Simulated assay, not measured.
Amino acid sequence: MLAGEAAARFELVNEYLSHLLDRNYSPATVRAYGYDLLAFCRWLTEQDLNPEAVTTNVLLDYLKACREASVPGRPGPNVVTMDGQRVDRYAATTINRRLAAISGLFTFAGLRSPDAKNPVPRGREARWMVAGERSGMLAHTTRRRKPRSALRLREPKKLPVALSASDAATLVGSLRTWRDRAIAGLMLWCGLRSCEVLALDVKDVDIGGRWVTVTGKGAKQRRVPLDPDVASVIDVYLLAERPESTSERLFLVAKGPHRGQGLTPAGLRTIFRYHRELTGVRGGNPHAFRHTFGTVLAEAGVDLAVMQALLGHAHVDTTARYVHLAPAHVKAEFDAARERLRTQNR
């Protein structure tokens, strides 16, 4: 929530964030929107404007300011990426998320006052149907298409980056506690997100039946098969290493003043940062393990619907990105096609 001397001018923002919490939005989403709207309110204060005075032209000025702003702590304007983009600028995804937060704010204001005009212009529909949806084969996955704002920036479509087998083995091999090995195993061999791992309770893990009940984004639950090796590691952790605690969380802090409390995202990032520096595996962040799991499934030729269920994706389009990440599978199919052509031409 916004606080301070100028907070009274932006009471609408606090009401909107409370509205998102009431609608069961993720606390992480509400927190991100809060920071996005805080940046917008600070800019409005510099321009001596209130939310009621915001027009489309004002939004265009704000987006221009976002594109031209420098990010503190990054190298100067003389440092660019391989594609020529300056690294001291906000990414298009960051600016678009700020725009989404602002759009939601004024949509909420319209619910309160139907006569209020939304300064965020509506654009064309967000996405087209894929071929399978048009033909009916994937009709059950079709989402209602929503119009996006015409002010959105183009975002680069980047594929997830997976770890090589050697890098993954090196990083996992450097972990010294049963807890850390269990966490890495759940992400690498079961495909869980780091936030899903940290949210696990002891009762969510069925070691005998080898199932894990996972609560993913939007509080959606799914059951994921538990790898037998990971199940053994979790079993040892519960019997020999997990500290006594009243907390129901599976993974707890082992040392220090917070011993027995649930492991936090910051604590998990610290663990992986230490082992990245120790092993030299630069891409060894928690989410890279999940990307590696998805890539392995794609290379093994697992059905797309099964991959979607295992990874907990809301739509099959997200899962389909991993198919493009399977170079070994693609190369094998390419070589097989060439061999068939050569055989036919003989």
Rank of each mutant, 00 (worst) to 15 (best):
Y237E: 09
R122Y: 14
L192T: 02
N96M: 07
L198R: 04
A92I: 12
D48I: 08
R134F: 13
A219C: 05
D227I: 04
M137F: 11
K146T: 13
T279L: 10
R276H: 13
P156F: 11
L263E: 02
A8L: 05
A332L: 13
S245K: 14
E196C: 07
E11V: 04
R176V: 04
T29S: 12
L20R: 01
H313M: 08
A266Q: 10
V306D: 14
C195R: 00
A169M: 03
T215H: 01
P27I: 14
E46I: 14
P286Y: 15
G132P: 12
M1R: 11
T142Q: 04
T292L: 13
K220G: 13
E333L: 05
A3H: 12
P119D: 05
F10L: 08
G208A: 08
V306H: 12
L325F: 02
H140T: 12
A328I: 05
D61C: 14
G104F: 04
R273F: 11
S232E: 06
M129Q: 15
G73E: 03
V197C: 05
P228K: 09
F334K: 00
R223T: 09
G260N: 04
G208F: 00
T318N: 11
C195L: 03
A288P: 03
A298Q: 15
S164F: 00
H324D: 01
G73Y: 01
M137S: 09
S174Y: 07
S26D: 04
V316G: 01
A32I: 14
E333Y: 02
V13M: 09
L159P: 12
V13P: 10
V330E: 04
T343N: 08
I271D: 15
D167H: 06
R259G: 11
G280K: 00
Y62V: 01
P51D: 02
S194Y: 00
R346P: 02
G76Q: 06
L38P: 07
W189A: 00
Y25Q: 08
I95H: 07
V30A: 07
S174L: 09
F10Q: 05
L44S: 10
R342K: 05
V253L: 11
D201Y: 06
P156L: 06
Q85D: 13
L44A: 13
A332W: 05
S164G: 15
L268D: 02
T45N: 14
R154I: 14
L2P: 10
T343G: 07
S164D: 05
G209Q: 15
H313Q: 05
A109T: 06
G84Q: 08
E15T: 03
A28W: 14
Y62G: 05
S174M: 14
K255P: 07
L17Y: 01
G76P: 03
V87C: 07
L153A: 04
L188W: 00
D48H: 04
G4C: 09
L268P: 00
L311G: 02
A240P: 01
A91I: 08
V87A: 13
P225N: 13
L198D: 02
R89Y: 07
